[in-house]
């Protein structure tokens, strides 16, 4: 039945994405592969240097510490975001009033760009003028330096990222919650299960597919956390919030070492791939499809 004409039409419809795959996926990946074996400063032609960039990478402490920073950021951000989003979604899933209004409040940070968020967050975390230290003062706690403190900068960035992203993830969970059949809860009530029991045995498994999606999206976000860090700290103080993507950008567009930057990009590819595979494996074990 599928005539040649039909297939041609279908291909024509899909052609934008075919162009996308060639120009925006295949080309970057291959070009990065080539560049990672060269010394390229954007002015002179690339010069083949073999594995030099990769050997430098192995001994580059700043690179490894950027990977560590990325890991810490992810470990703080992903679980906090997921748990908070689920709690808020459960609260929002009650038959209460003003839902659009309340939901809207959580979306304001979502729709704000990072440039806006940077200044809004400054009103909270600015060590001199921010409200966070004022609040700590009420409890007799010493003021903190937040984004200026090497120890606190990543937790603070993660908190801001959660604050910005939780509304979006909350709505993802809300959709999943509304898809859980009400009868299950009613059945559990008849059996005498308490609220925690219902949450643990009906809600959590019921949204496990979405939990998985939230985890994947959050992990991708941490790898894309470039804009947040670029705008808010530029990797400071003294490298404490230098994430790997920012380190790569710096090598490429600040120091003009595009070959080295390409090698970093390839390592990032490998890590993303690894994470995706691990998550797919976990999905098979964890997710209960109702």
């Amino acid at each position: 039945m599928a005539s040649l004409r039909d297939r041609l039409w279908a291909t024509l419809f899909a052609s934008p994405y075919l162009a996308h795959l060639i120009l925006l996926t295949a080309w970057p990946v291959l070009a990065l592969a080539y560049l990672s074996f060269t010394d390229y400063d954007t002015v002179s032609d690339p010069e083949w240097v073999g594995l030099d960039n990769y050997t430098r990478l192995l001994g580059d402490e700043a690179f490894w510490s950027s990977l560590g920073n990325t890991g810490v950021f992810a470990l703080l951000y992903v679980p906090a975001q997921t748990v908070l989003a689920l709690v808020l979604a459960v609260a929002l899933n009650q038959k209460i009033r003003f839902i659009p209004l309340l939901r809207g409040a959580y979306f304001v940070p979502v729709v704000s760009s990072w440039v806006v968020i940077a200044y809004v967050a400054d009103s909270v975390f600015n060590p001199r003028t921010g409200s966070a230290n004022t609040v700590l003062g009420w409890f007799g706690i010493d003021p903190q330096a937040w984004l200026n403190s090497p120890a606190l900068v990543i937790p603070t960035l993660a908190a801001v990222a959660v604050w910005k992203g939780v509304g979006y993830m909350m709505v993802l969970f809300l959709a999943a919650l509304q898809a859980i059949p009400q009868e299950r809860y009613e059945a559990a009530m008849v059996d005498g299960g308490n609220a925690w029991h219902r949450f643990r045995h009906i809600t959590v498994p019921g949204v496990s597919g979405t939990t998985f999606l939230v985890l994947v999206l959050s992990t991708i976000t941490t790898l894309q956390a470039f804009e947040q860090v670029y705008v808010m700290t530029d990797g400071g103080p003294s490298g404490a919030s230098e994430l790997t993507v920012l380190y790569m950008y710096r090598q490429g567009f600040q120091f003009f070492q595009l070959g080295y930057a390409a090698a970093i990009a390839w390592v990032l590819f490998a890590i993303i791939l690894l994470f995706t595979l691990v998550q797919l494996w976990l999905q098979r074990r964890w997710v209960h499809y109702a």
């Binding site: 060590p127 001199r128 330096a145 937040w146 200026n148 403190s149 090497p150 400071g236 103080p237």
Partner: peptide, 13 residues
């Protein structure tokens, strides 16, 4: 100290 200097706005403020 270093953290306080940056936190209070550095040489700017």
């Amino acid at each position: 100290d270093v953290v306080t200097t940056d936190a209070l706005g550095g040489s700017q403020t």
